[in-house]
Amino acid sequence: MTLTVHQTFLPHTDPDASLAFYRDALGFEVHSQVEYGGLHWITVGSVQQGGVSIVLYPPAATPGVTPDEGRTIAEMMAKGTYAALVLATPDLDSTFERLQAQAEVVQEPTEQPYGVRDCAFRDPAGNLIRIQECR
């Protein structure tokens, strides 16, 4: 069996802020934008990984989520505990320097006890974005 990562989903709360972060700050290309029923989906991806996409979706579009669950999701997103994404770069310090003025810093570049050097930011929706240095 051969499997590859094709898409992953991250919730967003503001399409314009999401575009500013993922396209303008991170440098991802926009693959598509879809609006339906007042909701907005944005698919982005790294130029270096053409076959892998991040779908930024409105949490309200998740089927079967009750109003109580929706409130819990919104609270978790606001705290940065609902969703996360791990990215990689060969130059963590330069990446951190470039992004720190454009995103909320959670952690400056740090050598972790589990063997990676990384930093962390939050996207406009509160999702945790960790960036690891590739060695």
Rank of each mutant, 00 (worst) to 15 (best):
Q33M: 10
G45I: 02
V30D: 02
L3I: 14
T66F: 03
T89C: 11
Q100V: 09
Q48E: 14
F21Q: 03
T72L: 14
L39C: 07
F28H: 02
Y36T: 07
P67D: 11
I42N: 00
R130W: 05
P58E: 09
T43K: 01
V5D: 10
I54F: 01
Y57S: 08
P109Q: 06
S46A: 14
H12A: 09
E108K: 15
G37P: 09
Y57N: 07
T4E: 12
A78L: 14
T110I: 10
Q7M: 07
L3R: 15
E35D: 13
V44N: 01
D123E: 04
T66S: 14
L56K: 01
V34Q: 10
Q48I: 05
A17T: 07
Q107D: 10
W41G: 00
N127H: 05
D118S: 14
E29C: 04
L87C: 10
A78D: 14
Y114N: 06
E69S: 14
R122V: 04
V55A: 01
V30G: 02
F28S: 01
P59S: 12
V47A: 12
Y82N: 08
V5H: 13
T2R: 15
L10R: 01
C119W: 00
G51M: 03
F21R: 02
E111D: 14
T8F: 07
S32A: 13
S18M: 08
R130N: 11
P124W: 00
V106A: 09
Q100K: 15
P113V: 10
E29T: 11
R117F: 05
S32G: 10
P11E: 02
E75A: 15
Y22I: 04
D91H: 13
R117P: 07
R117V: 09
H40C: 09
V47N: 09
L92W: 02
Y36H: 13
S32R: 02
E133Q: 15
G126Q: 12
G70K: 15
P67C: 09
P90H: 09
L128C: 13
G126P: 11
A78W: 13
E35L: 05
P124R: 03
D24Q: 12
H40E: 08
E29N: 05
T2E: 12
L87K: 07
G115K: 12
F96I: 04
L10F: 00
L128N: 08
A25E: 06
D93C: 06
V34D: 04
S46V: 03
G70C: 11
R23M: 03
G37N: 15
S18V: 02
T81K: 13
T43Y: 00
A74Y: 04
D24Y: 05
G126F: 04
L3H: 14
T110F: 07
Y82I: 02
T2I: 11
I54P: 00
I73L: 12
A103I: 11
D93L: 06
L56A: 01
V86G: 11
A83M: 02
V55N: 00
R135H: 10
R23F: 00
T66E: 04
Q132M: 13
F9I: 10
W41P: 00
L26W: 02
G80E: 06
E108S: 12
P90G: 06
P58Y: 03
D16Q: 15
T110C: 08
